[in-house]
Design a protein around this nucleic acid. Sequence first.
DNA 1: CTAGGACCTCACGTTGACGTCAGAGGCAAG
DNA 2: CTTGCCTCTGACGTCAACGTGAGGTCCTAG
Lengths: 125, 125
Amino acid sequence: MRIGEVAERSGVSVRALRYYEEQQLLPAQRSPSGQRRYSPAAVERVQLIQLLYSAGLSSASIVRLLPCVESGTSTPDVVEHLLAERARIDAQVHALTAARERLDEVIVAATDPAHTCTVSGPLDT
Amino acid sequence: MRIGEVAERSGVSVRALRYYEEQQLLPAQRSPSGQRRYSPAAVERVQLIQLLYSAGLSSASIVRLLPCVESGTSTPDVVEHLLAERARIDAQVHALTAARERLDEVIVAATDPAHTCTVSGPLDT
DNA sequence: CTAGGACCTCACGTTGACGTCAGAGGCAAG
DNA sequence: CTTGCCTCTGACGTCAACGTGAGGTCCTAG
């Protein structure tokens, strides 16, 4: 496959794929004229890369962890790195959840006319 | 309170507090000589700002939503904005959870010696 | 042969939440 | 008065994952 097809199938830009190669995330064969050639597995790999990016991992982290995630194998220092990323993700989920609850309070107060205000106003009974 | 004390109590940098003022997130009184003076409530406000930042909201969003979050009041367009941010947070939580599960597979395979590989290897029985 | 996509390599631009440095003024203690 | 820490206003630097041309090459259809 050529780079345009991989881009279309995986939903990322051509520029992004070239960037991934530069970051050692997605090696590519070259045609005699210098064009990149990809195996079909590249599409899945790109999607996995996107998944990890969307979880806040950096290129450097993905470079280290991607082969282990794909193969299931790991060395002790990689496991440590995995646990660190996992902890970071947990913390991030907690932060997001806390913020969401905070927003939900306002949403509920605004969309529920029968809502008795429990946060910012006194109850005059 | 002066800016250094607010910074220390809220756990952010002095630079960040000046940035918040620039972004209209944290107004400050001024002493006759031009130094910023904050009320004790500023500390809580900064912590709320940090919470929203950590959930991925931009300064512009926080500017719009912060007064409503603090007061519990809201207008229809703000509610729309709240719902949009809420949806974004949900999507982010899902992405994080999916990535965490992916990492957990590798972690489990690496830390559980009795683990039967169910992902990357065939079962020769 | 030729038009026109798709591809190539630089290489600079973007964005947001600050970090950091420079130079100048403010303020309580000794 | 002066030492020393805090604060002020600019204003440039950072970092990461790309976006966006510029200028040139490849290749397939007509």
